[in-house]
């Protein structure tokens, strides 16, 4: 059983929901990213999603775009992020998922990446611009290795394709809550609820909801519909506001703690 499967089944047994915070690796710099990951784990994060910076992130809103630009100032590369994960693995067993656009993966080489990622202790990959039809090499490698290839589905995804995606995905299904980019504001929860009901009928795999989740209140509401909630831009914005602040890890940890409380039904 993979670390991701293990996390979800453990949470299910406790009737709890996974909190999956996202940060950009290398923002503001790599050593800080390691501190942030460990602080978020302490604060109650269940899985960490680590962004790999890319020059042209078409699925991301301004907050994550700028985080990527900050990380690229140091030329943070996929290789650096893998090294970072292996450093984190000396101290923590928290599942780590990389979110990367496809071009850096292609340049690295799919097979090389899977080897390196497995050695570093990466648990999964999210590649927003790689639909399964284009990802034969990734699929092959992920089936052969312990790494999960986590697929996304969107509000526009038709039924037949939704079934296909939930069959193909590994670890969990990433449900994009809105038609838009990361950091947009999620207004209508009823559509999400209806979609989640459909997905539930199709698959027993865990489903995590991301995009547009920015407050503990939203996390709580969405947590009721899914197995996990992904919070990205709201955390990255905190990083942006505290770039030089020595207290950055504890500021982020404070917010993560509130999110986790919201998910576990404790007062926010």
């Amino acid at each position: 059983m993979s670390r991701i499967d293990h996390t979800f089944s453990g949470l299910r047994a406790k009737k709890e929901k996974a909190l999956i915070p996202y940060i950009m690796a290398g923002d503001p710099y790599l050593e800080r990213t390691e501190e942030l990951v460990l602080a978020m784990e302490q604060a109650g994060a269940d899985i960490i999603e680590l962004g790999v910076p890319f020059s042209d992130p078409i699925a991301d809103g301004p907050v994550i775009q700028q985080a990527g630009q900050r990380a690229l100032k140091w030329k943070t590369s996929l290789k650096d992020v893998l090294k970072l994960v292996s450093d984190i693995r000396k101290k923590s067993e928290i599942p780590i998922v990389l979110m990367t656009y496809y071009n850096p993966v292609h340049k690295f080489g799919v097979e090389n990446l899977f080897k390196a990622a497995e050695t570093s202790g990466v648990d999964g990959l999210i590649i927003p611009d790689l639909p399964p039809e284009e990802g034969r090499a990734v699929l092959e490698q992920s089936r052969r290795s312990g790494l999960d290839w986590i697929l996304l589905s969107a509000p526009t995804t038709p039924m037949k394709r939704l079934r296909f995606l939930s069959e193909q995905t590994q670890g969990f299904l990433y449900y994009v809550s809105l038609t838009g980019i990361t950091g947009a504001s999620l207004k209508d929860l009823s559509e999400v609820r209806a979609r989640l009901k459909m997905i539930r009928r199709m698959t027993d795999k865990p489903v995590a909801i991301g995009f547009g989740v920015s407050t503990p209140e939203q996390a709580r509401a969405l947590g009721r519909m899914a197995d996990g909630v992904i919070v990205g831009s709201a955390i990255v914005r905190l990083v942006e506001q505290h770039l030089e602040d020595p207290e950055l890890p504890s500021v982020v940890a404070g917010f993560v703690k509130r999110l986790k409380h919201a998910l576990t039904g404790k007062p926010i």
Binding site: E134, L152, R161, L165, G180
Partner: peptide
């Protein structure tokens, strides 16, 4: 039929756009 010219082309797009 999937828009590949040999190894080139294809449809490397976010899931939201696939139906469009």
């Amino acid at each position: 039929q999937n828009g590949h010219f040999g190894i080139y082309g294809g449809r490397f797009a976010p899931e939201t756009l696939i139906p469009a």
